[in-house]
């Protein structure tokens, strides 16, 4: 029995890990683009981006998952996600990436706007391009400032991965819950809880390390 539970939980946790890392890979850069959009001086773009961010942050991720998965099929009459679990997994990723990109974009924006204008001007009068100023001067200062809120979001994402089951993606909690119905076992669910705790604990340690690493400047 124990072995069977562990196998199921492993399968579920791999899915959870996949959702976690693939979401980050997509949403971290996408969030930066969106934050540039919300700070754009081109007002239509700014308005559009701000509206998207508002909608995505103002509605439950669960709702977004359902709409993104079923919406295209019902509206366009075609399931753009493909059949089976593969298709559902892609829909989950799309929903998560968009959702987290919007959250990250607001954190980036706060960080970028907190950098004093003098930093940009000092770089520009030295003849650096706007790109060079951003990547060589501003970015690391932004990273340092946004580490605490990013750490929160990463931990939220760990827990949000469990929402994937809404559209039948077999993630960790589902894997654990199966044994309640079939065998009346509760401990597999406790194991999933321990898994989340360890995962978010490791993240907390990693972020603390990063903060320490960037503590050489103020």
């Amino acid at each position: 029995m124990f072995q069977q539970v562990m196998m199921e939980l492993t399968t579920g946790s791999v899915k959870t890990l996949e959702i976690f890392f693939l979401t980050l890979i997509g949403s971290l850069p996408l969030g930066l683009l969106i934050s540039f959009g919300t700070m754009s001086r081109f007002l239509p773009l700014k308005g559009l981006m701000k509206t998207i961010v508002w909608i995505v942050r103002g509605t439950p991720l669960m709702l977004q998952l359902i709409i993104i998965y079923y919406g295209p099929g019902l509206i366009l009459g075609a399931n753009i996600w493909g059949m089976g679990s593969e298709g559902r997994f892609i829909a989950v990723l799309v929903a998560f990436i968009i959702n987290y990109a919007c959250y990250f974009s607001e954190i980036y924006r706060g960080g970028i706007e907190s950098i004093p204008q003098g930093q940009y001007e000092a770089g520009e009068v030295l003849g650096l391009s706007k790109r060079q100023v951003f990547f060589k001067i501003v970015l690391l200062q932004v990273v340092k400032r946004i580490l605490p809120p990013m750490s929160n979001e990463f931990i939220n994402l760990v827990k949000d991965t469990s929402l994937a089951r809404i559209i039948a993606v077999y993630e960790l909690i589902w894997a654990g819950q199966v044994f309640i119905k079939s065998d009346g076992l509760i401990w597999p669910l406790f194991m999933t809880g321990a898994y989340y705790l360890i995962f978010s604990g490791l993240l907390t340690i990693a972020f603390a390390k990063l903060e320490k690493k960037l503590s050489y400047f103020k």
Binding site: G118, E121, A122, G123, V125, G127, I137, L140, Q141, F217
Partner: peptide, 15 residues
């Protein structure tokens, strides 16, 4: 690049 500028607030790059 013809000009250099020293600001009131120094504006050194902290990192």
């Amino acid at each position: 690049l013809h000009f250099g500028m020293v600001f009131q607030q120094f504006n050194l790059f902290p990192q």
